[in-house]
């Protein structure tokens, strides 16, 4: 199915991306929780969501979505549209509720998102030693995701396998969002060596009281405000664990949390 057909089926407005309307897509993810899209989204997916903030576009960029469709007449603000233009991600808006949009698309036999990604594009791993430090500010939701998007670009330019780039971007994004949501500030260091990508993030914040509980899917201490932003469903740390080859978490309550993550460059196809 093409985006053009989707536009006509959902009677959608094209807010950006007219020139991509002939592009085909194969599957749809319907969610208001960005961690859910990060966990299950595959490249080329169309994201249906009622969440019109910039995080929906960051997420689309990280999972390499074909387009974002806002339901129930929602539209992103100017900042969101600018980000979509910058990242070249088509954004559409339909007046239908999510349920009906799913019903109409499903009836035209679009597949749901499969739980495992199996698109492995071939590319040469041509990485050299590289390191970069990002400062992340707690509570700054409008800038949230920018370090991860930049990390993704850097890894791509280094010629890292796209499957690995995607895993690293998801890990970085979930970790970055944790700082934005819970901590005062943090520092994320991305290092690329010939064998692996290493992400080390240290934040100054409340720490995690019960790490074992926090690693369980569904456990969250998020406020309602955070939940309404599409995060805080208790999928962040499990998402990191799922995509990392090594994940060490150390924390001191009242001081902060340190994430040490390794993704090996020869570990494609792990997830």
């Amino acid at each position: 199915m093409t985006l053009k057909e989707l536009v006509s089926l959902l009677e959608a407005d094209v807010l950006f991306g007219e020139r991509h309307l002939d592009d085909e897509f194969r599957c749809v993810s319907a969610s208001d929780l960005m961690s859910d899209v990060l966990a299950f989204g595959v490249p080329g997916v169309v994201i249906l969501t009622g969440l019109p903030n910039t995080q929906s576009i960051c997420t689309a960029d990280i999972v390499e979505a074909k387009a974002v469709v806002y339901v129930r007449g929602k539209r992103p603000d100017r900042e969101g549209i600018l980000l979509a233009q910058e990242r070249d991600i088509p954004i559409l808006s339909t007046k239908f509720f999510m349920y009906k949009a799913c019903g109409l698309l499903y009836s035209r036999s679009i597949e749901g998102v499969e739980k495992t990604s199996n698109e492995y594009a071939d590319s040469m791993v041509n990485s050299r030693n590289f390191s970069r430090v990002f400062k992340i500010k707690g509570g700054n939701f409008s800038k949230a995701g920018s370090a991860s998007i930049e990390t993704k670009e850097i890894l791509r330019e280094l010629g890292v396998d796209p499957v690995i780039v995607r895993r690293a971007a998801i890990v970085a994004y979930e970790a970055e969002m944790n700082v934005v949501m819970y901590a005062d500030n943090g520092e994320m260091v991305i290092t690329v060596n010939p064998d692996a990508i290493r992400i080390r993030l240290q934040d100054q914040g409340p720490g995690i009281k019960d790490i074992d509980a926090a690693m369980q899917e569904g456990f969250s201490t998020a406020s309602d405000e955070i939940r309404e932003m599409g995060f805080g469903a208790g999928m962040g740390l499990p998402n990191i664990k799922k995509n990392a080859d090594v994940f060490e978490l150390t924390t001191t309550v009242g001081k902060g949390t340190c994430y040490k993550i390794v993704i090996y460059l020869d570990s494609r196809g792990r997830t």
Binding site: A30, S31, D32, L33, D36, G50, L51, R72, F97, M98, Y99, C102, D224, R227, E228, G230, A233
Partner: peptide, 8 residues
Amino acid sequence: YTCDLLSD
């Protein structure tokens, strides 16, 4: 009704 936002 398909939605993950409680207020919605």
